[in-house]
Design a binder for these strands. Structure first.
Lengths: 322, 322
DNA sequence: CTGAAAGCGCTTACAG
DNA sequence: CTGAAAGCGCTTACAG
């Protein structure tokens, strides 16, 4: 692989001149630069970012850490984030793993965005996180000790869903999924704010996958006291639940209304186009890009940045019958 | 951020000793190593991979280039690949973009795996590809000029699907999607091999998304000559098509049989559990990991590695009626 | 406008 | 068993 020294030799200048020419230093004479650029081009020169970054401390690369890719939400967020970072002159690389933080920390990326993931040991994570020496923040968390973060106001989102259902006449509103504490709290608070009763039996246990949602409904016995509407924990759970409802012969939204969390294209293409709540993912990505760049530039930032979920009306909510 | 020099000072040894201790050089005295390790641990030392790699030429990082993440196939492949590489002592980083190759080439990753993606300009890509100076190969391609690759025998897969349908009595088998030439060729050849007639009207135009599959069926007018079975280009197209069929009141598989390409969990959870053809994704990942490691070690490799798709029987294929 | 030199944080023959 | 020194490919004050 060709280096600046090789180019220097070919161009008959010193390699520091080559470096400057390549970096657009205005002090370099036009013809010199042209010559250097031409040779570089001809030999397919690629700057060794490692060396460059070792010397400057900058790489223009930002890392994004996810712990899974199987939820299509992350595909969308990654895509949006990549685009937003690119606009700002950064490249994004992705790591899908709990040990991703270490990779990026060894690679000395300029900054690092972490999706708030399900952790066995949250405390250990925060401890590790607090020792990171690069600009970093957690996206979609509820709170990060002593450092900036972007919060999604999930409770408010769930309140909007409950409120909307209530306005359609629903009085018994269930929740499918019990793996995310905030959402569950949001659900309880929303019932309180809207004056509806909380019934523990209306929270169907489900973790986070399609199957979890599917079996949550399959395993549930409907009776006269059952909810007339459900809110699903996330996109997958909601879609699994929808399938199970339809298979059981329930009509959505005629018999049962359903609102899903996470607004993704997939939701629109479900058997019944799903009404959803969720953060606008383009805004989420733009704010995240904005924040990480500000942190890298060591600018003052106000945090937390709060993203307000929105309610996206489609066809899975109807008037409560009777 | 702490460096080996800092540790050297704290430990009262030279920094070359620290480097050796950290890398497990057996020549270092046990106690010296212990002391160094302890100090490193205490100060949360992270080796600067950039510096290390600049000096050794190795990073133990492998890049994976995708051009999109929206197809769940890639989430699965990425996950599998990450796991397989980890087993072999490598970390995987991901880049989702057409310019991903450049990022990795600048980062000097040890090796690079590219998913064979849809390109505007294939020729330019191969030209760029051939100038890469790191170990690299294309996964899921049909052919790579002058370098190793992993081929998925898509034609054989499609033949298996056609054959299976024929055995169920189907004589008119359609294909949904016209965006992948190999698959289309495979389809034609399969018809030939099974002695079935090719009818251009039985290839429904569709690109690669869920909507494409959905509208392919919506826009198709069924008549007495229509196919009694379809094969879908990929997982998304197949699922979109299934939805459209069901909405049109067609029963699957009673009225129409359907086989989808790409065996993903999603296919199993479709409205009708879909019979699929596709490469076993765990094998694909294992082979890919094996190959890139061999290339990095500069071992002789036989190529192409060919992955044979399999037929996964589920519930979307039935006997042809009448 | 250009170049010599020091330095980024490591590794590794080589000497002791 | 340990250390001094050169080198990986860049950048950047500084001198000219």
């Amino acid at each position: 692989m060709i280096t600046i020294k090789d180019i220097a030799k070919l161009a008959g200048v010193s390699y520091s001149t080559v470096s400057k020419a390549l970096n657009g230093d205005p002090r370099i004479k036009h013809e010199t630069r042209q010559k250097v650029l031409q040779i570089a081009e001809k030999h397919q020169y690629r700057k060794n970012i490692l060396a460059s970054q070792l010397s400057t401390g900058r790489s223009n690369i930002i890392g994004f850490v996810l712990d899974e890719l199987s939820n299509p939400l992350f595909a969308t967020i990654s895509g949006n984030l990549h685009a937003e970072l690119k606009k700002r002159g950064y490249q994004m690389i992705l790591v899908v793993a709990d040990d991703g933080l270490d990779v990026f920390s060894q690679l000395r990326v300029d900054g690092c965005i972490l999706w708030d993931y399900a952790l066995d040991n949250r405390e250990a994570f925060w401890k590790r996180y607090s020792t990171l020496s690069m600009p970093c923040f957690v996206l979609g968390t509820d709170e990060t000790p002593n450092s900036p973060y972007i919060k999604i106001d999930r409770k408010e989102g769930i309140y909007m869903a409950v409120k909307h259902l209530q306005e359609q006449g629903h009085r018994r509103i269930g929740f499918i999924g019990n793996s995310q504490l905030v959402k569950l709290e949001g659900y309880r608070e929303a019932l309180q704010r809207t004056g509806l009763a909380f019934n523990p039996a209306h929270v169907l246990p489900a973790h986070s996958s399609w199957e979890d949602g599917y079996f949550a409904i399959r395993n549930y016995s409907f009776d006269a006291d059952s909810p007339t509407a459900f809110i699903g924990l996330n996109n997958l759970v909601t879609r699994g639940a929808l399938r199970a409802l339809l298979e059981a012969g329930q009509l959505v939204p005629q018999d049962i209304s359903l609102i899903g969390y996470d607004d993704l294209p997939d939701m629109q293409y479900a058997e019944v186009a799903l009404t959803t709540i969720g953060p606008p993912l383009d805004e989420l990505a733009a704010q995240a890009a904005e924040l990480i760049v500000a942190l890298i530039r060591d600018e003052e930032v106000d945090y937390p940045v709060v993203i307000q979920p929105k309610l996206y009306h489609r066809s899975s909510v109807g008037l409560c019958r009777g």
